[in-house]
């Protein structure tokens, strides 16, 4: 019982101090955040296909996490967790495990989903950097 109380106190203390720390830290970019967003978007090659460029879009969760340096206050964090959990869809056919051989292929390389004009790494166990 004593241990439980001690644990509880330690946890509350951690939350309290991290909440304070979050208040103290300003959002990244400070007063230049808007300028920075504009500059970032203007920095990409004009010949990037449109669908590549959609990868720069941010949803509310991404925007909020940026604001709090990936460490939002618990209340906001819980909201985001619920919001995102609600978007999870199970496979319609009810099969939860797919083709594991295909999965293994994906796991063996680190380059899935890479885009860009510079030649991506060849697939294989050393394709990481």
């Amino acid at each position: 019982m004593k241990l439980k109380i001690a644990l509880f106190c330690a946890l509350t203390a951690t939350f309290a101090t991290s909440a304070l720390a979050q208040k103290a830290a300003e959002a990244p970019g400070g007063k230049y955040a808007k300028d920075a967003e504009q500059m970032f978007r203007a920095s990409f090659r004009a010949d990037n296909p449109k669908y590549w460029m959609t990868r720069l879009e941010q949803d509310e969760t991404m925007k909020t996490c940026l604001q709090y340096r990936d460490n939002p206050p618990r209340k906001i964090g819980e909201k985001l967790e619920k919001l995102n959990a609600a978007t999870i869809r199970y496979p319609v056919d009810g099969k939860l495990i797919g083709d594991w051989k295909e999965g293994e292929k994906l796991a063996a390389v680190g380059t899935g989903g890479h885009i860009g004009f510079i030649q991506p790494d060849p697939a294989g166990p050393r394709a990481w950097r």
């Binding site: 990244p28 230049y32 920075a36 970032f40 990868r55 879009e57 941010q58 991404m62 940026l66 990936d70």
Partner: peptide, 8 residues
């Protein structure tokens, strides 16, 4: 710093 933390 902004770009460092920007998620997408």
């Amino acid at each position: 710093e902004y770009i460092f933390y920007r998620r997408s």
